Computed example of a mutant assay.
Amino acid sequence: MTDVSPEQLSAEEKKRLKYYSASQWTLIWWRFRRHKAAMVAVMILGLMALSGIFAEFVAPYGTTTRDTSYLDGAPQIPKFCDQNGCSIQPFIHGVSTKRDPITLRAISVPDPEKRVYVTFFAKGEPVKVLGLIATDRHLFGLSDPKAKLHLWGTDDLGRDVFSRTIYATRVSLSIGVIGVMISFVLALIIGGVAGYAGGVIDNVIQRVTEVIRVVPIIPLYMGLAAAMPKEWSTTQVYFAMTLILGLFGWPTLARRIRSQLLSIRNEDYVVAARLAGARPTRIISRHMLPSFTSFIIVDLVISFPYMILSETALSFVGLGLRPPTVSWGVLLQQAQSVRVIEQTPWLFIPAVFVVVAVLAFTVIGDGLRDAADPYSDSH
């Protein structure tokens, strides 16, 4: 058989050679890129994560900044044209206050004769981006420093819903990430020990796992929420909430890791490593776990929606984070009355973020599952 240089191969042959010589992670990435829905979900989550990380810059106002002249104000959508003509620069109408003839409440109404132009990198409240970079510039604002722009309206205290939602995105996503990481480390250790050791150790660990799985979550969180000292700061409550979600989120993943390890613990390469004198930690980490790492990552990604939904649900019913901390669940606490549905439906916007984030993580999990399947179509 004569040797053929790479230059003599056809384009199709080069493509096949590159494919078959690629690593496992490269193959997974190539398959994942072909999953268009998953790539869209990655971009959506990436945009949400970036807006949360740089919330101080993206949000025009702080979470507690009030606009007392625009209570329960409707969303202000920038426009280019009105009855007075068109403009190349987006603008909103100024706001004037009048008395509702029925309820006698002071209400804010647009003033069609007054235009306030939207500008980018506008000056606003002094903030520290990432807690380090001091600036008074925000992604967008108004040309009139005395006027305020509320893209998604305001709540009953005049706080900007858009700004609060952006800050809440950072809190909710970070709780999901940190909580999943904590549960993943616990699942890796506990499931790894149970799957590798087997016997009595496995039986004891499985009984403990079953006890944790059958603990009623809501009463447990009610007790833990009541036990949290009232004098705790918002940061302490945040870390306590994250730790609780992580400590009770490991059993499912631990059992999956255990079952995978039990199925391969007597394979030839594992026995050879054991006879060579390798320590159990090395055998598990260097020989056993890599054989199904891709499936662990899939399970890990799918765990994110459950963690986010848990935080949102608990904060929604008052068992999670507490104001002035903002998360999606805390913001949705304001949307529990019929009055909100009828008069201020824009307070439900954080619910859209929850749905979009959960769907995005689910789609990414499906894409990773297909990409990690060695029997999927690779052509």
Rank of each mutant, 00 (worst) to 15 (best):
S263N: 04
L309N: 13
R34N: 05
V95P: 11
T344W: 11
V95R: 10
E7W: 05
R258Y: 02
T64H: 15
V161A: 14
P101C: 04
A276G: 12
V185S: 01
I53R: 05
G62E: 04
F239R: 05
G46R: 06
L261H: 14
I92R: 03
S69R: 02
W29C: 04
G199Q: 09
K36H: 14
Y375F: 06
E113Q: 13
H35A: 15
W250H: 10
M48I: 12
H93Y: 09
G329Y: 15
D373H: 11
I189S: 09
K128F: 15
I349S: 01
V185G: 01
Y221G: 05
W152F: 13
H138K: 14
R256I: 07
S263A: 05
Q89W: 12
M1Y: 13
I302C: 06
V237N: 15
A41L: 05
I182V: 13
D67W: 11
P305G: 15
Q83I: 00
V185T: 03
S315Q: 02
I166K: 06
G367L: 04
P251R: 00
K148D: 00
D144E: 08
Y61M: 02
R256L: 05
I53C: 10
S143E: 07
G246M: 08
T154Y: 09
G153Y: 13
R213K: 02
A272Y: 14
N84K: 01
P216H: 08
A225V: 10
V358N: 09
S87T: 12
T64K: 14
F32V: 02
D156N: 15
D366W: 03
P110Y: 00
H150T: 07
R16D: 14
F348K: 01
L188N: 00
T103F: 14
V180R: 05
K15E: 00
A187Q: 00
Q24R: 09
I341F: 08
V355C: 09
T119Y: 09
L332Q: 00
V237W: 06
T281I: 11
I133Y: 04
F140Y: 09
T2S: 11
W232A: 01
I264Y: 09
C86M: 07
R322A: 06
M39R: 09
I102V: 05
A41Q: 04
N84G: 09
I284V: 11
T169W: 00
L50M: 03
E125W: 08
I166D: 02
F80L: 06
I341A: 06
L224N: 02
I201G: 01
T68A: 13
S23D: 06
R34Q: 09
E13Q: 10
V211P: 02
I189K: 11
L157H: 07
P101S: 12
C86G: 13
V129R: 12
T65A: 08
V237G: 15
D3S: 13
V4A: 06
P78N: 02
D72E: 08
L104Q: 05
T26M: 08
R282E: 11
E311K: 09
V127Q: 13
A41C: 04
R115K: 01
R279N: 15
L142N: 09
N84T: 04
L186F: 03
Y117M: 07
D160T: 02
L253G: 03
K14Q: 10
L289Q: 01
V215M: 11
L47R: 07
S143T: 09
G94N: 06
T293R: 08
S285G: 14
G223P: 15
